[in-house]
């Protein structure tokens, strides 16, 4: 049974690149356009979440904290995929419970390697 990945990003082009790469690698993909949309998509089995940081309505860090406070998804690994390369933001993400940090723009293989590693963990 295919593993389900939730992608939360306000950039359609980033969602498309991620979706194509993950689908080809055999994952089932759910898309959300921001943190608030991401919270509504938290349903059923989700093996891993990939989230942007800077998004309208609800940013990625707030979304990450909400996921970690959710009884059903607090152990779901979250990868932050963002333009933010600064240590402050990174530390904020780490403290909120993110498992990995990828800086955009990224090569799809980088993301696939991280997803495969965290899905096995």
């Amino acid at each position: 049974m295919a593993k389900r990945i939730l992608i939360v990003d306000d950039s359609a082009s980033v969602r498309q690149v991620s979706n194509i790469a993950l689908t080809r690698a055999g994952y089932e993909v759910i898309e959300a356009t921001d943190g608030q949309d991401g919270l509504t998509k938290l349903a059923g089995k989700i093996n891993l979440i990939i989230s942007d940081v800077n998004m309208p309505r609800m940013d990625g860090i707030t979304f990450l904290k909400a996921v970690k406070a959710h009884p059903n998804y607090k152990f779901t690994p979250v990868i932050m995929l963002t333009t933010e390369a600064g240590e402050d933001k990174k530390n904020e993400g780490r403290a909120a419970g993110a498992k990995a940090w990828i800086v955009k723009p990224f090569q799809p293989q980088t993301m696939l390697d991280a997803v495969a590693k965290l899905c096995l963990a």
């Binding site: 990174k90 990995a100 990828i102 800086v103 955009k104 090569q107 980088t110 991280a114 590693k117």
Partner: peptide
């Protein structure tokens, strides 16, 4: 300049 990052730009926590 904008450059697509290589495969090493993932940092695990």
């Amino acid at each position: 300049t904008l450059k697509v990052q290589g495969g090493s730009d993932v940092e695990f926590f």
